[in-house]
Amino acid sequence: MSEESAVMWVEKYRPKTLDEVVNHKQIIESLKGFLKNPLTMPHLLFAGPPGNGKTTVALCLARHLLGENWRNYTLELNASDERGIQMVRERIKNFTRHLMGSMANVPYGLVILDESDQMTAEAQTALRRIMEANSRTSRFILICNYSGKIIEPIQSRCAIFRFSPLKREDVIGYLHRIAKNEGVNLTDSGAEAIIEQCGGDLRRAINTLQAASTISKTVDKKVVLQVVGRAGAEEVRSLLEKALKGDFLKAREMLYELMVTYGLSGSDIIRQIHREIFNLNLPQKTQIELANLIGEYDFRLVEGANEDIQLSALLAQLTRFGLQKSS
């Protein structure tokens, strides 16, 4: 696969070397330290919110450490896609066995395990043993959103790097650079709207920009909202309105629709609801009360087992809230 010909902008503009990465200066410096003597590099754990460059940095590091043919010595796995730890073990076993024959050119093979916080504690315990068994031939880079969801024994075996959320101006700068290169006129209101919708998630931001640019070469707020509308934002708003007006059943039906048909995750939806609260025509006092309620259920969503029960429960609270306010 040639990266030059990438059509999706997230790939086309993904940095290839550590020097091209604009953010995370301190992390990049420490990682460069390992390049001088690759054998001193421990296993790594990259933690941070989605879309802020963890995978990119891991891939850049792979290029630096393993050279031109880095793909041959790198195994990319995704914990949330593999069918159980057994499969992960098998794939790593095959990978290291295949490495054995060609280790002359590289210090070790790299296993990049993305979304490792999606694994259960049991699977992580098994993973720890796999890491130990293969530590002579391989280094692991574990990527996760929350390092707290990684078991202690794994954390203590890794150098942990926390990737802070991207700054607003950094994301805007990034978007403008891409827009210029692609001959797209990104207006200030357009850039603001993208940030509004995507926060520091650069992946979502770039995808929004690309989708918007296919509608119009001038990307302003209106075009962005048109794209985001298709990505479910409109539906989230009308589901929120239904709940507050007292139509719980309709609201829940729309919720299911969003989860099943649009494939939105619970936390996606709850974040979107949170955003929409402040667009509603309500007193600020009420808005902040509602936001607090949403915060509580966001927490329960993380702690609980079943997303649609937690989200429906939130809708039921909103329905009650709406009726109390109107009476």
Binding site: E11, T55, L59, D81, D114, R203, T214, G263
Partner: peptide, 30 residues
Amino acid sequence: AEKCHVSRRRATMDFLPFLKAIFSSNLEEA
């Protein structure tokens, strides 16, 4: 997931909606 170094789950959340937007508005790009 294969091309863009993400999980299928992430692809569903962060790519699919935007691809739908592109595919319904710009055949060339699609």
